[in-house]
Design a protein around this nucleic acid. Structure first.
Lengths: 342, 342
DNA sequence: TATTTCTTTGCAATCGGTTACAGAATCAAA
DNA sequence: TTTGATTCTGTAACCGATTGCAAAGAAATA
């Protein structure tokens, strides 16, 4: 029971009395090789269970056919959808993907970036962590002209293609919806305003208020992270407000679900007393009672689009690390958590 | 703006007038190299931004320092916790991890296994997909004496270390809890009985009934997958039963959450009319109303344990692909969805 | 038959790091 | 001063696939 040894092109060459060069060419369907020879090689390779040694190949060709993906989290419907989209396109184009998750911390994001750089991925797709401010760890890719693209959580201070939704518009629509339901005092619970997504949604929120000629009140904007007990904190804040709000726009479905549970515990009716809108259309938004009104955005499509851009950049060597923004559509899905009018 | 060229040990060697061999040794902290020389090399390497070429190294050493992890899904708290545990231990031991998700299908699991095999990972940790029956795609690892370990979703027909909870015991405890709450007619909603986890939980369910001298009624066991609308189907089945059940044991928290929502829609009170117990202690179990009684099991610990075994096997070359079972503790967490007694 | 062209295959260098073995240099002991 | 041990560094082969160039053989043309 000794371990099975790997078959190399040299083994095949010896057995067929050909040179390794011919074997190599035959295996890659190089038309310069005689069809009969090619078939012989292929057959023997299959029979012997030959598999190409990627290291040798990568070393020689200086390519890895691998795309690195850095995500800020894994545990969400949106992210799973994005990954699925990326995978589809990448696989079709002959690339493997390498997933690294930064778990919402720059520290891990930095490590992941270094790792992928050392693994010499051919391209990188990333969504920034919660607290990333300095993007220096992405510079090496740019210096080496390795395609680097961002989706969802991005930053305008880096030369890269980005695939995003129009967060300002989404924030505007969500807020407008609450206003249309008759809300006059809307709490906006969101996260780190250094992240584009949250900053833009806040801008949209402000814009909607302005449109309805309502004053912007900073005290109604609650900035937190979205840890598990953040919902509790938000509701506590709400409960201590002298003038009670009648609307709540949370930029995260998980958190809005917790908020709803906490509000109910406190005897506040949703949507009667407070209408609630979340963000992301996560599965949880359809699980809690009442179902949560939310912003849906197409994860899979975003994944596909960004992977397509990347593959195109790799094939054409054009537009690599050029600042460019692609906006995909998002939509408001109205459910019971915000319905106050017929 | 030409892309930055990579620095190699040859570049460093030339600049320091040393041989590549010395550079290689110095960079790996080989004590045979004079401390002063080593420092010189290290300093220059840092200054020049040298990074080792893993392909060259892997090619020569026939090792990748990479562990492949195949998970059946990504989008759950449990899985994220397991991955975090694996990552901690792996990183500490100098291994990278490579995540592949099979999205609950054998087809992708097979592809992933082949991919990891071709990437020549040093070891593999896997949790089986929903419909995996034939395990042939894992055989290549065993043939090559590459450590292969399973967690959670496993199979007894393959020679591998497995880290699991005592699913039979968990099923027993969950059922017993419902019986203790006065339930007499308990529906067991579960999934593919070919998967150990579901089969064992059913055994536990049966055992509890027997203990309480209640008859086992096959009509009360509903086998489905756990797609998004499965909860709806389960509740529909329940609604059509002539004798209404008073207990529901679902082996998945997401699904049990949907069930609760659907039951409520149908005017059935939880836990008064039907007491519900889920499985996994997913975040959602604390989000829905009432909070769901569930079985908690330690994802991070499982991740750490299995990675520790793997690292040990890699270091010692012992116990590779030996059938062995490690059981980690699980516990019932009682919440409102099942509480009918004080 | 001689010459040219085309097809097919082989030679050998290359990618960058590792390591067994040899050899040089230093120092201590005889 | 010689010998032996010790410490440090270098030489060169190797891992396996790729590819520019040379060359052999076959076929076509003169």
């Amino acid at each position: 029971m000794t371990p099975q040894k790997d078959i190399t092109i040299y083994d095949l060459a010896k057995e067929l009395d050909l040179s390794p060069a011919t074997i190599s060419r035959a295996l890659k369907n190089n038309p310069i090789i005689n069809a009969a020879t090619r078939k012989k090689v292929m057959d023997l390779a299959a029979k012997k269970g030959y598999r190409s040694n990627a290291f040798a190949s990568n070393l020689r060709t200086q390519k890895t056919n691998t795309i690195g993906v850095i995500v800020h989290e894994l545990n969400s419907y949106f992210m799973t959808a994005v990954l699925a989209g990326i995978e589809e396109v990448a696989t079709e184009a002959g690339y493997d993907i390498l997933i690294a998750h930064s778990n919402e911390t720059v520290a891990k994001e930095r490590t992941n970036a270094h790792n992928l750089f050392n693994k010499r991925v051919d391209g990188v797709i990333a969504s920034l962590a919660y607290d990333t401010e300095d993007l220096a760890h992405f510079e090496p890719f740019i210096k080496k002209h390795i395609p680097l693209l961002f989706f969802d959580r991005t930053d305008n201070n880096i030369a890269a293609t980005q695939v995003v939704i129009d967060n300002e518009e989404a924030g505007y629509i969500a807020t407008k919806h609450l206003l249309d339901q008759g809300c006059k005092r809307i709490v906006h619970a969101t996260a780190n305003l250094k992240r584009n997504v949250y900053a833009d949604r806040l801008t949209g929120y402000k814009k909607a208020l302005k449109k309805y000629k309502l004053p912007y009140n900073e005290a109604l904007v609650l900035v937190n992270d979205f840890k598990e007990d953040t919902g509790k904190l938000i509701v506590e804040s709400i409960l201590t407000m002298k003038e009670k709000p009648d609307g709540l726009f949370v930029t995260n479905d998980f958190c809005s679900a917790v908020c709803i549970a906490e509000l109910k515990k406190a005897g506040i009716k949703v949507p009667k007393d407070i209408a609630v809108v979340g963000f992301n259309n996560d599965v949880v938004s359809r699980m809690v009672e009442p179902n949560i009104t939310t912003i849906n955005y197409p994860g899979k499509l975003m994944g596909r689009m960004i992977a397509e851009r990347l593959v195109l950049q790799l094939k054409t060597k054009k537009n690599i690390n050029k600042q460019e923004q692609i906006i995909v559509p998002s939509e408001l899905i109205v459910r019971d958590s915000s319905k106050r009018k017929k």
